[in-house]
């Protein structure tokens, strides 16, 4: 029996200005419990896709969107409650501490407050859990968002450039977290760092000219293959 896909989006077009779409006929399928890396050059549309999936952008059209076998819209409550998004830059809730934010987010998702002590230790975040988020550095803020994301364990994690701003140790820890998340759900993360993509992903999608140009899976996932694909697009 064919396994139902977690998320299917067909022919998504997104634009900031009507005559210049950023994504054009973009289609993506995500299975349950997999890790998918999304790579592309600057301006390819990685963040645009994540913002569209977050329901933040209004300039888009698509042919079909299916979540767990049901048609859905990006702003549907059911979809929102099953996905969590970590943006590349996020200065939200500056007057909450991390613990207060986690409590607030857990209530919003309708889940019990998760035990994130292991995540806090792994990211060396112990000294910052009770400090206002506005007083944290960029890297520490990223850690706070990632701890909340992995602590809440939604069915789908969308991570936009999750490695940006992290120190070396935290980056290594993040790779382990992403790889281990298959037990709980699916991760789609965008990056322009080949190492993070190759070390953690079950599939790698190359975003080029507004759509998924190539998909690498299994043994095909190698830095030189992906680099070659990106260079080919750059030279086009």
């Amino acid at each position: 029996m064919k396994e139902e896909k977690l998320l299917s989006i067909d022919k998504l077009s997104v634009w900031y200005a009507a005559d210049r779409p950023v994504l054009s006929d973009f289609s993506i399928d995500l299975e349950a419990n997999e890790v998918v890396g999304l790579i592309g050059l600057n301006g390819a549309g990685k963040t645009t896709f994540i913002k569209t999936a977050a329901g933040l952008l209004e300039g888009y059209r698509l042919e079909r969107a299916v979540w767990n076998g049901q048609p859905f819209s990006f702003r549907d409550r059911e979809f929102k409650r099953n996905r969590y998004i970590v943006f590349a830059e996020d200065s939200s809730f500056p007057y909450f501490t991390f613990r207060e934010y986690l409590d607030y987010a857990a209530s919003s998702y309708g889940v019990p407050l998760p035990d994130v002590s292991e995540l806090v230790r792994g990211f060396h975040f112990e000294a910052y859990t009770d400090v206002l988020l506005k007083e944290l550095s960029t890297g520490s803020r990223k850690k706070a968002s990632l701890i909340a994301a992995f602590g809440l364990r939604p069915s789908l994690l969308l991570l936009d450039e999750p490695v940006n701003g992290l120190d070396f140790q935290s980056t290594e820890f993040l790779y382990r977290l992403i790889g281990g998340y298959k037990e709980y759900g699916t991760v789609l993360f965008s990056s322009h760092i080949l190492e993070s993509i190759c070390l953690t992903s079950d599939r790698v999608m190359v975003l080029e000219k507004g759509r998924i140009g190539r998909v690498f899976a299994g043994r095909e996932i190698a830095a030189e293959n992906i680099r070659e694909a990106l260079s080919a697009y750059e030279n086009d």
Partner: peptide
């Protein structure tokens, strides 16, 4: 903050 509130459910 506005972005985060629009992204979080409810």
């Amino acid at each position: 903050l506005e972005q985060a509130l629009r992204v979080l459910p409810g």
